[in-house]
């Protein structure tokens, strides 16, 4: 264990213990690594591989299948503009063009200050508020260019710390029910006690 910090290590072990097969924790662990560093570093993938009993290549192979898992650095705020059918009918292409202009980067790129990464999203399931925009997977409902600009300004000034955590933090609620202590963890603690006693 060297990649995850002390708090994250405890959470990582808890995640693995939730599933009958450790590998099921692979994607949740990737989210956890992104919470720590904002993206999925090679070191993170190595440690996740160890935690769930697969090779680092299998972790990478799985992670690269999913849009939300980033194997390269992204900005503090990942801005996703949906242009799928319902949003398309309500000015999404125009809003995405505006977003590129306002942020000064094309789709897929990160601003030089490392604050924003712009993405063109597929349907985000908020189609009664088109065009749909998410920042770090939070629905921000900035349906106009003016509202979008205002949000970018607020985020640039350090606003929204409460409602839009830095990229990677997905779920801030910690599971507290039905937790069993991982058998491996018990074995490790016993071994440590025996070693010290």
């Amino acid at each position: 264990m060297s990649y995850f910090n002390a708090t994250m290590t405890g959470r990582a072990r808890q995640l693995v213990s939730l599933y009958p097969e450790p590998r099921s924790a692979l994607v949740p662990l990737c989210h956890l690594a992104q919470e720590q560093d904002g993206w999925l570093t090679p070191e993170a993938m190595e440690e996740i591989a160890e935690l769930v009993g697969v090779t680092p290549a299998e972790v990478r192979g799985t992670a690269t299948f999913y849009d939300m898992l980033h194997t390269e650095p992204v900005g503090r705020y990942v801005v996703a503009v949906c242009t799928n059918i319902a949003c398309l009918l309500d000015g999404a292409i125009e809003l995405l063009a505006h977003a590129q202009e306002r942020l000064g980067v094309p789709v897929g790129a990160t601003t030089p200050d490392g604050l924003f990464t712009l993405e063109e999203a597929e349907c985000l399931a908020d189609c009664d508020h088109p065009p749909c925009v998410q920042v770090n997977h939070r629905f921000v409902r900035t349906t106009t260019a003016a509202a979008f600009d205002r949000l970018v300004e607020e985020l640039s000034a350090g606003g929204h710390a409460e409602d839009i955590p830095a990229h990677g933090t997905l779920v801030r609620v910690r599971r507290s029910g039905g937790l069993r202590v991982d058998a491996g963890q018990i074995a490790r603690e016993r071994a440590a006690q025996e070693g010290s006693g």
Binding site: H31, Y66, M68, L124, A125, Q134, N136, H137, R138, F139, L170, V171, R172, V173, R174, R175, S176, G177, G178
Partner: peptide, 24 residues
Amino acid sequence: GEFALGLERMEQALNDAYHHGAVG
């Protein structure tokens, strides 16, 4: 995964359901 708020609400609901004795 893109439903960050939904995930938080569901996780909280699950915690509360456990403590209420409805799960577990």
